[in-house]
């Protein structure tokens, strides 16, 4: 974390997030994201070994409901919003056999 965010870091993160960046965008985002990460150095520098994390402001418990069948969203209404549908299912391009 002592090294500044690099262009390669941003390229890797963009790939993980399924975003394609042009060379110019890669330059701009590298500069902007590095500045933001630099600003967060105040937090990264704190010694918080004894402090527990807070992921959520409420003391949450698992919420359950009775195991009974209730109406769900209308299938045709949902499918009507999909970009591509076949046999009342979402249609996507090939997945099996493609490069990882």
């Amino acid at each position: 974390m002592s090294e500044r965010l690099s262009r390669d870091d941003v390229a890797k993160v963009a790939m993980l997030a399924r975003l394609a960046l042009t060379d110019a965008e890669l330059d701009t985002y590298t500069e902007q994201l590095a500045a933001i990460i630099d600003h967060a150095a105040d937090v990264a520098a704190l010694d918080l070994a004894e402090v527990p994390p807070t992921a959520h402001p409420l003391p949450l418990e698992n919420v359950l409901r009775p195991d009974v069948v209730v109406p769900s969203l209308d299938r045709d209404e949902v499918l009507a919003q999909a970009p591509a549908v076949e046999d009342r299912r979402f249609r996507v391009p090939a997945i099996l056999g493609e490069e990882p």
Partner: peptide
């Protein structure tokens, strides 16, 4: 896949990236 825009591509991974981009 399920709602909103899609930019078509050969594979699903490419379609995901093209759509989000």
């Amino acid at each position: 896949v399920r709602y909103g825009m899609r930019v078509d591509a050969e594979t699903t991974a490419e379609m995901n990236t093209a759509t989000r981009t």
